[in-house]
Each structure stands twice: as C-alpha cells, then as structure tokens.
C-alpha cells in the first residue's frame, strides 16, 4: 500500500515536503495507525502522536486523504491510494504530523469547562434526574481531538477570536447541565461578533467528528438560549 506523508521539522527544515512510503504487509482489518507504527519501525524519524489506539484519547487526529480523522479508527481498506497524510490544518506544525494545539486548548479553557455553582455545595452529591442527565448525551463524549475545529474555516481565519466548534460544544455541555448555575455569565461571555457568531453553519465539524457528535446543533442551541435570555 502506498502512502504520501507530510514531513517537516520546525527546527531544521525551511519547507515541508511530501515523502512517499510503501507498506507491503497489510493485514485484514488493519487500521491506519497500525500502518503508521509499522512505517515508523522502518523510518524512526517519522513523527506522530498516538496513545490509546481505540478512539478514546484523541491523540492521533490528522488529515487523511483531505479529511480530518483519527488514524486509530480509520480502516485502511476504506482509503484510496496513495494515502495522503497531513497534519491537522490551520495549526502550527511542530514536526511531521504533530501540531501545536496550544491555541485549541486556550479556546477550550476560555469557555470555563467546569461546573460553576453559586449555592452552597450539597453535603453528599449533586443530584440529577435521568432526564437531566440525558441532556448531556452527545456533548460529554467529546475527546478534544481537534478534528472539528481544525476543519472549520472560521477557526482557520480567526483561531484567536472564534472559539471553534470543540470549545462551543463544551460550552453548551455546561449550559445544558442542570447543576451549573452560571448560565447568564456563560451566555454573556459568548456575545460579540467573534466568539460564537463566526460560525456560519457549514457543518464541516459534524462531517469529521470521529465520535459522531454535532457541534453545529450545540451552537444552534446556544443561540436559542441567547435569544431567550435577551427577550
């Protein structure tokens, strides 16, 4: 199987280049990450992030044949040759397929992704009805792999001002949480032309999310809450 992989070392290279690789031993059911690990055994300079190998940690997000995804849960048999691998678009490349996610995490932190409670904390635990808990489904599963935000043109053009789909999904995760009491502050924080409203609903985020989540819907629901709050 033929591969064409983006190579760049930010410390030594002036320009990135595409390097061709061939992998002979393809086993049935093999995932792209397995192929990358085998290629790395042949060429140890090839650099990429990986950890759990089962789509939970979100480390191996990359651009696979033009589409963001996780290498560990992308079957090789679904890919056209040569398999073209590039780092996630729009972020500074540290080396090969490894990008600097600082900006992405800054936007995540900006939505205060934790429960804020103004009342005295309960003595035992926060109680939630099953229905209230269900409202978090489709939101809490995000693994912060950055596939969505780095496929979003609005995030490419304004990564420092637009929060991006991943952070906005998390913002809604806490807005939707029955235990959180900072709804007003959270919504006020998202006002302005950039943080939320650079989203033009093109839904690239929904298309690439390896966990099948829907940031666009979450953003729509935030807008609905904002409208409710303002009237």
């Amino acid at each position: 199987m033929r591969f064409s992989i983006y190579r760049y070392n930010s410390e030594t290279d002036r320009e990135p280049r595409m390097q061709d690789y061939v992998l002979e031993e393809i086993e049935p059911g093999m995932m792209l990450l397995n192929a990358l690990i085998k290629l790395k055994a042949e060429d140890e300079t090839l650099t990429f992030r990986r950890s759990c190998q089962e789509g939970i940690c979100g480390s191996d997000g990359m651009n696979i044949n033009g589409r963001n995804g996780l290498a560990c849960i992308t079957p090789l048999k679904d890919l056209d040759e040569p398999v073209t691998l590039r780092p996630l678009p729009g972020l500074p490349v540290i080396r090969d397929l490894v990008v600097d996610l600082s900006q992405f995490y800054r936007q995540y932190r900006a939505v205060k992704p934790w429960l804020t409670v103004h009342d005295p904390e309960p003595e035992v635990e926060f109680l939630q009805s099953p229905a209230q808990r269900d409202r978090l489904d489709g939101l809490y599963e995000c693994i912060l792999c950055a596939c969505c935000s780095t496929s979003c043109p609005s995030f490419w053009w304004n990564p420092d001002k637009f929060l991006g789909p991943a952070a906005l999904l998390q913002s809604y995760r806490f807005l939707a949480d029955s235990r959180d009491q900072a709804t007003d502050e959270r919504l006020a924080d998202l006002e302005g032309p950039y943080k939320l409203f650079r989203c033009h609903t093109i839904m690239n985020c929904v298309q690439v999310c390896p966990k099948g989540l829907n940031p666009t819907q979450a953003i729509g629901r935030i807008k609905k809450l904002m409208v409710k709050r303002s009237v």
Binding site: L196, F197, S230
Partner: peptide, 9 residues
C-alpha cells in the same frame, strides 16, 4: 449591531 443582534436581524 454585533453578535446576537446582527444574527437575529
């Protein structure tokens, strides 16, 4: 007219 207001308009 920014943010929510622009979007609503």
């Amino acid at each position: 007219m920014t943010g929510l207001r622009a979007w609503l308009v």
